[in-house]
C-alpha cells in the first residue's frame, strides 16, 4: 500500500491553524490528502464517505462529546487521533494517540504523523495488496477465466465450494479486479493464460 495516499482530516475551526498544518503536510514527504472539518458532526459525516486514516484535532471539539468520540473510535478502530495540545486541557488530550503543540517544529509534527501511519499499516498488514497470487489461486483464476462456475471449480480442483469462494475473495483483494471479464484481462496481462485460448 506504499503508494496509496494517507487520508488526513483536520478538525479545527481556525482557518490560520488549518492552513498552516495543510502546507506543512503538503510540503513534507508524506503522501497524503488533507480534508477540513469544523465540528464533530461534519467529522462523522466525512468518516462515512471517505476512508480517513488520521484525524488531527483541536481537543476543544471533544468537550462534552464523549459519546460521539467513543462511537467513532469503536466504528473505526484503525483510525489514529493526533491532538493539538494548547496546554490547557489535559483530559481531552488523553483521548488522542499523540499530541503536538503549535510551537513544535514542522519536522517534529511530520515525524509524529508518519509514526501514526506505520501504526495503521501494522494493524492491517494482511490487506497488503501485493498481487502475488499463490499457486492455488492461479489455478482458481484460470478456471474463472475459462468461465467455470464455483461448483465446477470445486470439483476440478477437489476442494470445497467454500474454499473456492475464499480463493476468489483473495484474488480480488490482491488484484483489485472484481469482475470476471476484468480478471480475464488481468490473467492475460500477467501471462497466466495464453491470449490465443480466449475467444474474442
Amino acid at each position: 500500500m506504499l503508494n496509496s495516499p494517507l487520508h488526513i482530516v483536520i478538525l479545527e475551526s481556525s482557518k490560520i491553524i488549518f492552513e498552516g498544518l495543510y502546507s506543512i503536510l503538503y510540503q513534507s514527504d508524506i503522501h497524503c490528502r488533507v480534508y477540513r472539518v469544523e465540528n464533530i458532526d461534519e467529522l462523522s459525516d466525512m468518516l462515512k464517505t471517505e476512508n480517513i486514516n488520521i484525524i488531527i484535532a483541536n481537543p476543544m471539539h471533544f468537550v462534552n462529546r464523549d459519546k460521539e468520540i467513543k462511537k467513532i473510535k469503536k466504528e473505526f478502530p484503525s483510525l489514529s487521533i493526533v491532538g493539538i495540545d494548547f496546554g490547557i486541557m489535559q483530559k481531552a488530550v488523553t483521548e488522542t494517540n499523540a499530541a503536538f503543540t503549535l510551537y513544535d517544529t514542522p519536522e517534529h509534527i511530520i515525524h509524529l504523523i508518519s509514526r501514526m501511519d506505520s501504526r495503521n499499516k501494522s494493524l492491517s498488514k494482511n490487506n497488503d495488496d501485493n498481487d502475488n497470487l499463490t499457486k492455488r489461486e492461479i489455478e482458481v483464476l484460470t478456471c474463472i477465466v475459462n468461465g467455470k462456475l464455483n461448483k465446477e471449480i470445486a470439483e476440478e480442483l477437489n476442494i470445497s465450494i467454500h474454499t473456492v469462494v475464499r480463493h476468489r475473495k483473495n484474488i480480488t483483494t490482491k488484484t483489485g479486479i472484481r469482475s470476471q471479464s476484468g480478471l480475464t484481462i488481468y490473467a492475460i496481462s500477467k501471462k497466466i493464460v495464453e491470449i490465443e485460448d480466449i475467444e474474442i
Binding site: T175, G176, I177, R178, S179, S181, G182, I185, Y186, S189
Partner: peptide, 8 residues
C-alpha cells in the same frame, strides 16, 4: 466495472 477498467 469502471473501477476494474481503471485498475487494469
Amino acid at each position: 466495472k469502471l473501477h476494474d477498467l481503471k485498475n487494469l
